[in-house]
Design a protein around this nucleic acid. Structure first.
Lengths: 230, 230, 230, 230
DNA sequence: GATGAATGAGCGTTCATTCAT
DNA sequence: GATGAATGAACGCTCATTCAT
């Protein structure tokens, strides 16, 4: 819940419920038509409430956008820890994090693009909130990367930059989906993309570990670097 | 010039001149405030023409957006060949293309972000025109990649995917500038980013060639893979 | 209590109590912000009740305005008889009435101005009720004037017109307070104003009586007409 | 013209013309229904223009109110000098000023009441402009009073207070018209009211002068103080 | 060709009022 | 009797677009 959005209604449960209704409709419409083309009436209508009701839970339309973007990022924030829950080893954890990110982006492509399109439509204060939440998500991935580095599986990379490589791998799938949809499946995109990126950061030890795990876990899959002979 | 945008004025030179005026103002304002927040009056005022004049060279506001986005992409399309003019060798050509792309993006950050934000505000027909032009730009880079592959300097990569890695390297600089501006310079970003990506595609031969060229061109710089021993 | 305002609640004592709560808040807010700028929520909030409750004691917002204006006029209607209680002589009674009116107006300036601003916001039927109550207040003063005339202290003035001179003396203090506040005190305003008006209606007998009373009551004060020699 | 109201149109003549249209409609409607009940659409419709046009000559609805109130006061400001043009003697000048004021108020009763009702609806800055203009009008009357004092026709009165007696004489006719309309004609109201007020300020010399002039100008009229013997 | 005043549909927002609890 | 969440009509205002000059 975004503390900075005020409500005229007191009951927290009701706020939760109503905002969820409103935000779900907003994400859908903003995602399809954009923030400016979507009217409050559209949102109210899709959420099956009156226009006036929205203004009991939100101060203005921009607040709805903030809640919507916040919810989108919360989705990411929830998906990654869930995917890491039972994974212990650094390398699989990293892969799980990256994969989970890509999958949740894929499951919410419009919402992801929405974040790119409309973050600038937020007031500066709200924009900062969203940026902070994005960094929080990035940190989940960065932590996995750091674990791999600490375990000697990754070389001493620029963690921030490499994190963004992963992030952008996921986002690009959404941003350029109009292109990739014709070229390959998400699975293929994910595998190829991750392999490419991993290849430049794995230490020899990391490389060996990866091959062993890949062989054990999914014997059908050729090892990442199998195509390369050195 | 975009053929699909109709004008009420006949003289092609005048059209060229007036549209240039309008589009320059539009790119500036759209970039700073977004498409929807910018009014036709704003554009007219900045371009030093009357609102009515704009509608003599364009059918509606969306046409202005199309022309603006088209001009932004044209800028990319002009920058890359210019950077390749005197470079013959495949590897330097690739690097020159990637570098030029990043630089032109850096020089037009608002415009680049604009393309991400507002392409969806175009009518489908116009959206396709812009996508096509983006692909045309990508092709310039893809050609360089293919040359490197053909020359045995790159392994047989997924050209399309690798092209997008380069494209997104450039775009990410614009899209996440709010983050990177604090972390590193464009030079550093470019070098680190390109090295990372190159590292995963260079063949041993490409790697040697690169080291030799780097040694010759900028002896002060350590070779890309210096930290790794294989 | 205003008979024409209907309530959904039966208990008269409760009606009395709740309406007093509501009206006190309404007079305050209407006086400060005007009728239209004040919302039912504002009133409910200041009166520490729910918005719904108001509609149990009143049919609509305009009813609240009627009750508020009625209460303001009631204040006048109570103040004047109270000030006359122990005064027997016609001339002091007149002065007491006029003084009391000015003082109650001064003590409720916002409310007085409110009556001027918003009586027209009432439905015609309600407007008439308020006008009738204003006349009832005027009658208290007119009666004092008539007593003075009957006692030969005032000449045969146009009672209605002279009454309004007194009324407007009081109201002008409220209506033009922004000007008078800088120029003089209420005491000064009252004395100067009353003297001016008395001067034109006192008979020679009234004038002598006044001088005698003024000398007896407040010897420090120069007689009203001291400055004039005839 | 009110300098503080901005317009999107440049041509001063057009501004003059359009604002006159708008303001005439606004004064009519504000006077009849009040500021808040009157919508911009109402004004546009009565002025025979589109709603959008109004916003080319005014920034918001409150600006229209300012222009309307300003125009009302301008009417007063024009009427008084016009009435004084050919009158030289101080006493007739004073009477002409007071009479002209009452007549212009009578001719614009709704507008006068409007000023009382809605001045508080202005933003503080604009409120001050209106108050300043009211004082300017008062000064026209105050000057006449001062001339009479200087000529020894009036005693040394509190000019400010006496001015407001005149002003309120005029305004009361508008504010309490619902009462006076039944009781007397404007002529009667004016004569009685002015006589009452004059009676308390005339010096013996002024009184003689007045009687002489009244006898010469309107022999049919009994002198002001004929009913009183001193 | 160029101007910019005029149009009016459409949107965000408010708030008096209702009614289920 | 009391609550306060919900409603939706209505208003102020914007701005893309037109068209007389």
């Amino acid at each position: 819940m975004v503390a900075s959005v005020q409500s005229r209604v007191d009951d927290p449960q009701l706020i939760e419920k109503r905002r969820a209704q409103i935000v779900a409709a907003a994400i859908d419409l903003f995602g399809r038509f954009g923030y400016h083309r979507t009217t409050i009436r559209d949102i109210a209508s899709l959420a099956d409430v009156s226009t006036g009701l929205i203004y009991q839970y939100v101060r203005d339309k921009e607040d709805v956008l903030l809640l919507a973007l916040d919810e989108v990022l919360n989705g990411y924030l929830r998906a990654i820890p869930a995917a890491l829950r039972d994974v212990e080893d650094p390398l699989p954890r990293f892969r799980a994090a990256a994969t989970a990110y890509c999958r949740v982006v894929d499951a919410n492509i419009d919402a992801t693009v929405l974040a790119y399109r409309e973050t600038k439509s937020l007031r500066p204060v709200h924009r900062e909130l969203i940026k902070a939440k994005e960094l929080k998500t990035n940190d989940l991935i960065a932590a996995c990367i750091r674990d791999c580095v600490d375990a000697g599986l990754f070389r001493e990379v620029n963690v921030e930059l490499f994190t963004y490589q992963i992030v952008m791998l996921a986002h690009t799938w959404a941003l350029k989906r109009w292109r990739f949809a014709d070229l390959m499946s998400l699975e293929r995109y994910l595998d190829d993309g991750l392999d490419l990126l991993l290849d430049s950061v794995l230490t020899p030890r990391g490389r060996r570990r990866l091959q062993r795990q890949a062989a054990g876990a999914t014997p059908a899959r050729a090892p990442v670097t199998s195509g390369r002979s050195r």
